[in-house]
């Protein structure tokens, strides 16, 4: 078995010519959603299923992942923590604020938080960044996967509140959450355009790619926030 590092904390374990996307398991011996655990030279890796994770798919689609081992990340739409667990693996010296608004789902996420010291759970509505502005510090990266009709707006208003100058926004846009009939391409174009200026923050889109075959009708976006000159 061989291991290749793709970026901070993200690896490919190579078994018989098959490359398996994975992260270092921060909580060895435990699998979070039934994924495979692999031991390579005494280090445990956890398979990262790109079909279950937009961020995982973005890695494999060649996005430059801006998350470093000591980043502070704001994660919107954490659900029960499938992807958050991998972000937590990456952040050996960082922290992820995991926002989720469904109490039922949060129940599962808290179990994950109990096992991992670097996840901070927040039960709140991502449409209301002010309702957690007393909790969340300025962050380096915002990752968003809320699958809501106003995805661009949610991303923008949260960036305005919490993203540091030059910070990165990663976003998964699900076209069907926005418009079930329009063509995904058009929906994506509109959303990206909105993101680039409709909400009083400006972004420079660095990369955008559809996430197929892992997720149909999803667009991944990586953007950097511009800060307007106050002068």
């Amino acid at each position: 078995m061989k291991v290749e590092q793709l970026s901070d904390g993200i690896f490919e374990v190579i078994i018989d010519d098959r490359k398996i996307l994975s992260t270092h398991n921060l909580y060895p011996g435990h699998s979070v959603y039934g994924e495979r655990l692999m031991d390579v030279d005494g280090v445990e890796y956890r398979q990262w299923d790109p079909h279950r994770s937009k961020l995982g798919a973005m890695v494999l689609k060649g996005f430059e992942i801006p998350i470093e081992y000591d980043s502070h990340v704001l994660y919107l739409g954490a659900a029960s923590g499938t992807t958050v667990s991998h972000v937590s693996d990456i952040l050996t010296d960082g922290l992820v604020y995991a926002v989720e608004f469904s109490p039922r789902t949060m129940r599962d996420l808290i179990k994950l938080c109990d096992q991992r010291p670097n996840i901070i759970p927040i039960l709140a509505d991502a449409n209301q960044p002010r309702s957690y502005a007393h909790i969340v510090e300025t962050v380096d990266v915002i990752f968003q996967d809320v699958a809501q009709p106003n995805q661009a707006e949610i991303a923008a208003i949260n960036s305005k509140y919490f993203l540091e100058e030059d910070g990165h926004l990663m976003l998964s846009i699900k076209s069907r959450s926005i418009d079930t009939v329009a063509s995904p391409k058009k929906v994506f174009k509109d959303e990206v355009k909105k993101l680039e200026g409709d909400f009083g923050v400006e972004f420079e889109v660095l990369q955008r790619k559809e996430l197929d075959p892992f997720h149909e009708d999803h667009l991944g976006v990586l953007a950097r926030m511009f800060v307007e000159d106050e002068a």
Binding site: P129, S131, A133, H134, I135, E137, T138, K160, Y161, F162
Partner: peptide, 9 residues
């Protein structure tokens, strides 16, 4: 509540 983000840390 803060009306904009703060570097709370």
């Amino acid at each position: 509540l803060p009306t904009h983000g703060l570097d709370l840390r």
